[in-house]
């Protein structure tokens, strides 16, 4: 079970770099809003809603951060992603969009309902796409504060990423990179 879980998380790390490579995003902090649009998501900030709609979402449906709905338009499935820009800081808005990207690219919307594991994987994917471990290792970033500065993520996310990077360094060594990570870093040098 633990091995299976680890495989799923490793898959997320790779998926994050694949998505960045497929759409040509090699600069950090990641312009996650442009990436989402390029993937085909329509982004709708809560500030564009009426006060009544906002209050309903926030209080009645407990949609405090954001959510995505899919529907058909001209024969194609389109995704409308609503995100809270009213009382949520920008780093957390970026995290919400990155989280929703995972649901879109993994076809999570075809599932009857999303499990806690689906949500945990989307959170992990969000951290991996906003602050890839390959970049952290290559640049030798040494503290959560440096992560915040480099990737424009919240301190909470940065602390999580920092702990994960430290665990990885103890397991594989300070500068170890997987082949697919090296390939991605090559592209950041070439196109970033």
């Amino acid at each position: 079970m633990i091995e299976e879980n680890k495989k799923q998380y490793d898959k997320m790390t790779r998926l994050a770099l694949d998505v960045l490579s497929d759409y040509g995003f090699f600069c950090f902090p990641l312009d996650v809003f442009s990436l989402a649009k390029k993937i085909g998501m329509k982004l709708i900030p809560y500030s564009a809603l009426t006060l009544e709609q906002y209050m309903t979402l926030y209080h009645e449906h407990d949609m405090k951060l954001g959510f995505t709905v899919s529907h058909s338009e001209n024969g194609y499935i389109v995704y409308d992603t609503y995100y809270n820009d009213v009382d949520i800081q920008e780093p957390s808005q970026r995290f919400t969009i990155a989280h929703e990207i995972k649901h879109v690219v993994s076809e999570d919307f075809h599932k009857k309902y999303l499990t806690e594991n689906d949500e945990a994987l989307a959170n992990f994917f969000a951290k991996s796409i906003l602050a890839p471990q390959a970049v952290i290792i290559q640049e030798g970033l040494g503290s959560p504060e440096e992560y915040v500065e480099r990737f424009r993520i919240s301190l909470q996310s940065a602390e999580y990423c920092f702990a994960a990077a430290e665990r990885r360094k103890s397991a594989f060594g300070e500068t170890f990179l997987f082949n697919y990570e090296r390939e991605f870093l090559e592209k950041t040098k070439k196109y970033g």
Partner: peptide, 28 residues
Amino acid sequence: SGVTAPSLCRYLRGDIEPRIDIVRNIAR
């Protein structure tokens, strides 16, 4: 489609399976 040329090439060579977002963007 917004999909980079190297990635497009890999998908068309059949090296990797395209994800649903890639299929959608190319279909559009």
